[in-house]
Computed example of a mutant assay.
Amino acid sequence: MASIHPTAIVDPKAELADSVTVGAHTLIGPDVRIGEGTTVGPHCVIEGHTTIGRDNRIYQFASLGADPQDKKYRGEPTQLIIGDRNTIREFTTFNTGTVQDKGLTQIGHDNWIMAYVHVAHDCVIGDHNVIANAVQFAGHVLVGNHTLIGGMSGIHQFVRIGDFAMLGFQTRLSQDLPPFTVAAGNPAEVQNVHQEGPRRKGYSAERLSMLKQVHKLLFRRGLTLEAAKAEIAALRGQQPDADADIDNMLSFLALASRGIVR
């Protein structure tokens, strides 16, 4: 049986794995499922059609699965899905999706999400991201993997953030941020290529050098976006282990309907 504090209120229809721990005065609704090894702290509210995976640590006062803050919402049974091994700190608010999108807000695996972060309806956040205190995601935001998002930053609706991107403290991001790019400011401006994250993941010196070349073509040569994409594509094959990074960048740029930070 799950370890549930006597003051917690867990709906009998909720599905909690045997090794789940629930703290004092927490409320868990009927359509919630929580996987093995997850710890829910005191004074949390987990409601809606919410599925939480294994070995997550959810700190006190988190609100997960509440209705989306969208005036078009009419009570449809949309979802929040959270993966495995995430750290979710105090006063975080994750809302369910809307039927105007895919009806789903999704958090991946191994994310470190600090206090007061808001994840609005229909956001999709990948894996291994570090999201600092008080970051605010508007609806429909897409975040890749291995990103670093600085505290108190605001992310406009429908914006995409690529893999290994880094956003500085108190940044206002209203356009797409390409992979491997550091940006900061209000509004955001590109600062540099992000190499430290890839280096920690084992990228070779040659692969990091290719990231620099891609960055120069996209941001430093004064090329149009279409010309930059063509020259980036021409880099394929010069450093074979970097071809995946080139393809990642080109795929991201092909979908940049809001424009990119440049």
Rank of each mutant, 00 (worst) to 15 (best):
Ala2Thr: 15
Ser3Ile: 06
His5Trp: 06
His5Leu: 03
Ala8Leu: 09
Ile9Asp: 00
Asp11Arg: 05
Pro12Gln: 02
Leu16Arg: 08
Leu16Thr: 15
Ser19Tyr: 02
Val20Cys: 01
Val22Asn: 05
His25Ser: 13
Ile28Asn: 02
Gly35His: 06
Glu36Met: 09
Val40Asn: 02
Thr50Glu: 00
Thr51Asn: 07
Gly53His: 08
Asp55Thr: 07
Ile58Leu: 11
Phe61Tyr: 14
Phe61Arg: 08
Ala62Met: 06
Ala62Arg: 04
Ala66Lys: 03
Gln69Ile: 02
Gln69Val: 01
Tyr73Ile: 01
Gly75Asn: 09
Gln79Tyr: 03
Ile81Val: 14
Asp84Glu: 07
Thr87His: 04
Arg89Lys: 14
Phe91Pro: 03
Phe94Lys: 01
Thr96Ile: 12
Thr96Ala: 09
Gly97Val: 03
Gln106His: 03
Gln106Val: 00
Ile107Thr: 09
His109Lys: 11
Asn111Gln: 04
Asn111Arg: 04
Tyr116Thr: 00
Asp122Tyr: 05
Asn129Gln: 12
Gly139Ile: 02
His140Pro: 03
Gly144Asp: 00
Gly144Val: 03
Ile149Met: 13
Met152Asp: 10
Gly162Ser: 05
Asp163Pro: 06
Gly168Ser: 07
Gly168Trp: 10
Gln170Met: 09
Gln170Phe: 00
Ser174Gly: 13
Leu177Ser: 06
Pro179Gly: 14
Pro179Ile: 11
Pro179Asn: 13
Thr181Trp: 14
Val182Ala: 15
Val182Ile: 15
Asn192His: 11
Asn192Tyr: 07
Asn192Gly: 02
Asn192Met: 02
Gly197Ala: 14
Gly197Lys: 14
Ser204Met: 09
Ser204Asp: 02
Leu208Gly: 05
Leu211Cys: 12
Lys212Phe: 11
Val214Ile: 15
Lys216Arg: 15
Leu217Ile: 11
Leu217Val: 05
Phe219Trp: 06
Leu225Val: 03
Glu231Ile: 02
Gly237Ala: 06
Pro240Ser: 03
Asp243Ile: 11
Leu253Cys: 11
Ala256Val: 00
Gly259Leu: 07
